[in-house]
Amino acid sequence: NEKARPWVRPVHGLPDEAFLRGKAPMTKQEIRSVALSKLAPEADAVVCDIGAGTGSCTVELALQAPFGHVYAFEINEEALTVLQQNIGHFGLTNITVVAGDASQTLKTLDIAPDYAFIGGTKGNLAAILDDLYDKNEACRMVITAISLETLAAVTAYYAARNGYQLDITQVSTARSKRVGQHHLMMAQNPVYIMTAVRQDAGEA
């Protein structure tokens, strides 16, 4: 098509209301937007979403990489159902859902991810990071966490691994809630967003 328009990266951070919801946690719009801007996948990237939950990040990653592919890893049965529904809701075909424990299923796949977004590991963070780096030592990582224990685990992992630069951002947001004729700001949980890049790979 000689008149084809060039692809333009879509704006990330879709409204939470755009997604189907279940009881499983969902990464909120504000956190999603910052985390995806830190990951910054290329349009043809291979991306792993570890702990995909109900799929808000999976969907946005697939939109950011329309010529690539997203592998969404999730262990929770209820979340898997909503994840599949959201993929269908957005009509996306560049996503593969991998059910089960990512620390076991990841190593069975013959893929070389360029990027990985990690939102949940069921306590297997180090093993999952090792598997991702075994597949591609230059894989760009973004890890989100709300607990100090996960923050400590990430910093300890990279302290023992030379050649990677770890950047940590804490994001605190508040949303308005209407009470009578007034709007009150309701604080959301602070979230740590950690970005790890191989130093000789440079910034994406």
Rank of each mutant, 00 (worst) to 15 (best):
L39I: 11
M141Y: 01
P113G: 06
I111C: 07
R175N: 15
G180V: 04
L61Y: 10
M141E: 00
V97S: 07
I87H: 03
G22N: 14
E77Q: 15
A187S: 14
Q188R: 12
A65N: 08
A187I: 04
M185V: 00
T54M: 02
K38L: 14
C48W: 06
Y192Q: 00
L184M: 15
E2H: 07
L106R: 04
A116M: 08
T81H: 10
T27G: 10
V171A: 07
M194A: 10
G100S: 10
A72R: 04
R175Q: 15
I111G: 04
M26T: 03
R175M: 09
G100I: 08
T150Y: 08
R178A: 12
R178K: 15
F90Y: 11
R21S: 14
T195L: 10
V47Y: 03
H12V: 14
L151D: 06
L125Y: 10
S103E: 05
L83I: 05
D110M: 03
D200W: 09
G202A: 11
Y157S: 06
V82P: 05
T96C: 12
F67T: 02
A196Q: 01
F90E: 08
A102I: 11
N162S: 14
A174T: 13
L61P: 08
V34M: 10
V97Q: 12
A35T: 14
F67E: 15
A79M: 10
G68N: 08
A201W: 13
